[in-house]
Amino acid sequence: MRRNSPASAESLFHFLVFAVPEFPTPYYRWPYLMRQRWSQLLFAHWPVAPEVLRPYLPPRLTLDVFEGQAWLGVVPFTMSHIRPLGLPAVPGLNHLHELNVRTYATLDGVPGVWFLSLDATQPLGVWAARTLFHLPYLHARMRLTQQGNTLQAVAERTHAGSAPATFAATWTVGAPLPPAQPGSLAHFLTERYHLYTAGPNLQHDIHGPDLWRGQLLHAPWPLREAKVTSWESTLIESHGLPTPTGQPVLYAADPLDVWVQTLRRV
């Protein structure tokens, strides 16, 4: 029996585990755990004075700023096609809606996302994210629907012991935007391939000794114009932060496949 050559074995590994789309060889040698698809996504961001957000990060992280301003984002989206790499998706557990509140941080020169909260609709997914990925996921009820270019999201946090929060927004998706260029605000806000977390209980864990960094792999975000026609939210206020003023910076995005790497203690 003829043995597989190293090249054919690597190709078979790529086909079974990572499927399409193909990525350069260095990427799929990393220990990625999970594949997902993110769709119906909206980035909504407001500039915030750095001193307002600094207390919400562990001392080891540096708050990432753009031209002197920190940024606070609210991001609703649908996560689907969820499956561990190399295994089939589990019916009923491969789809959820998520709504996160985030800012940005760096450690040792590596930029990433810092989440204040991640509300999600799948109870087992919330448990797994809190237990295995140390992320501050919270139970919520959420509906995200789309008719043509108009999307509507409605959510209510249901997590026991957490500050209540509600969200209701409608937005329209417009024309495609050029790829975000390094050095631009769009690139700063969207092209983030790492995340940081100190544990699932944010107020307590940011003062603890633990800090993890995770890595995501995906193509550059296919951004589009977006316009919000209605917005009612207490998500940011649930963290004790003031209500943002002014119009948010908005980007919608086309669906994107995402690979999730194991977290590493840093």
Rank of each mutant, 00 (worst) to 15 (best):
A155R: 00
A155V: 00
V20S: 10
S230G: 08
Y137T: 00
A169F: 02
N4G: 10
G148D: 04
A49C: 10
R83K: 10
N4A: 14
T145P: 01
E237R: 07
P182K: 08
H159A: 09
G148T: 02
F15V: 14
T172M: 05
P179C: 06
T262V: 14
L57R: 11
V258H: 06
L42W: 12
V110P: 00
H95V: 09
F23W: 10
T243W: 04
Q261D: 13
E98A: 11
A219H: 10
G240P: 12
P178V: 05
H81Y: 04
L250Y: 11
V113N: 12
R2M: 07
G148I: 01
W38L: 08
P59A: 14
G183F: 03
L85A: 02
V65L: 11
L33K: 06
L85D: 02
L177F: 06
S184L: 14
P248L: 08
L256E: 02
P179F: 04
G109P: 12
P123Y: 02
Q247S: 13
S8A: 15
L241Y: 03
T121I: 03
L57D: 05
S117K: 04
P50L: 09
P111T: 07
P255E: 11
N149S: 11
Y27V: 14
P123T: 00
H187P: 01
G174V: 01
L250H: 09
A7N: 04
A129T: 03
H139P: 01
L12P: 01
H97G: 05
H194N: 12
S39R: 15
D205H: 14
G109C: 12
P50S: 11
A89K: 07
T121D: 06
F115E: 01
T62F: 01
P179L: 13
